[in-house]
Amino acid sequence: MKETSCKDCGLIIEIEHFDMTHQYSCPRCQSIFYRPGESFDLVLVMALSAFLFFIPTLFLPILTLTIMGQSHSVTLLEAVLFFFHDGYYVIAIIASSVGVFIPLVMLFLIMSLIIPAKIGRPIKKLKKLFLYYEHLAPWSMAEVYLISIFVAIVKLAGMATLKLDAGLYLFVFFLLSYYVTVSWFNAEDLWNHYDEMED
């Protein structure tokens, strides 16, 4: 027996036998209030692979540009640092945090939420991490960043000769596996998991 209330219209909903593998929607406003996530093991594997994709991108060049015989290759770290050279701090901070820092922090938070749940540690210490996760979740925009990489490459191709390097492919894989991790992870399941453990 699970009692909850619809986030979107406030209706009180009683579910006789709550099943974590089913999707539930509100009888009054039809909005989905529970969507099952993938198993924690799968999420953990995806999060770890995202980390593995990220480490080499720091050192490998992401692309080489040639304008009038002069070529120049950029690594991700250089690109992020270059943001801060020109004094466009606001844009620089937003673009680099959405593309790099928020994904890394989110992956770290997801892993540190799942691993204790798997080994059955108490929740008390996890409350803070969970709240950080909830506050950060709306700012996770990896899918938008992926498309903007594609658009930027098409735009640059019109101005200079471009050679895409290994770092860019790895970075795209990093964003993709991060996106999969976030969409598979259902933070609410964490609490259902602990509730089931108590029963």
């Binding site: 950029v74 270059f82 844009i91 673009a95 680099s96 903007s148």
Partner: peptide, 8 residues
């Protein structure tokens, strides 16, 4: 932002 950081 990406273009600014790549073309230098």
């Amino acid at each position: 932002a990406l273009m600014v950081s790549m073309v230098q």
